[in-house]
């Protein structure tokens, strides 16, 4: 990974907030005055099954918004882990919701894999349904491509007005993830 750009894939089941996580990250890049792009999968998979999105954050204009070799992978289900794990560039970082994904077999040694029981934590902390934000918090903290304040500000941009009451929950989830011990 060049220090000036970061290509990410967020992947999981539809309904887990995968596209939303990516959108928050893209907005964080925008707030931090970076060039950004966000591209969702919109194929048959979004009509039930897996969802994913590509996010690029860079100092330069973004070329292809489709990420094929991610620096960062955030996964919330096993099919997505299996699909994308080999495409992560050496030295890349992977963030897994270990409540939902059981990693079996040999793990790649040339990348950093962070396993976080995000769904379990969300249930314990009364943050049901936003395990995605816990995982995002961990990722944003470890990757550091944008400052955490930008991520928290981005949530304000992305949570729609009719769900404003969930804003604090989302922020708390991000902070919980960021501060969760490795």
């Amino acid at each position: 990974m060049k220090s000036k750009d970061c290509n990410m894939i967020f992947a999981g089941f539809g309904g887990q907030g995968i596209l939303f996580s990516g959108k928050v990250m893209a907005y964080a890049g925008l707030i931090d005055d970076k060039e950004v792009s966000w591209l969702p999968s919109y194929g048959p998979e979004m009509r039930g099954g897996t969802a994913n999105c590509s996010v690029c954050i860079s100092d330069e204009p973004v070329g292809s918004p489709l990420v094929v070799a991610p620096d960062v992978l955030v996964v919330m289900n096993k099919p997505s882990y299996d699909k994308f794990i080999d495409s992560v560039v050496p030295g890349g970082k992977v963030f897994v919701d270990s409540s939902l994904v059981e990693l079996t077999g040999e793990k790649r040694k040339d990348i950093e894999i962070y396993e976080l029981p995000a769904t379990k934590l969300s249930n314990e902390e009364h943050l049901e349904g936003i395990a995605n934000m816990i995982l995002l918090g961990k990722m944003a903290d470890k990757v550091g491509i944008v400052p955490m304040e930008a991520v928290l500000k981005a949530v304000e941009k992305c949570v729609p007005a009719r769900k404003a009451h969930l804003l604090e929950h989302n922020k708390r989830a991000i902070e919980l993830g960021a501060n969760y011990a490795d």
Partner: peptide
């Protein structure tokens, strides 16, 4: 095309 239509950019 579908890529430009679906992607978000500043």
């Amino acid at each position: 095309d579908g890529l430009l239509g679906q992607m978000m950019e500043p």
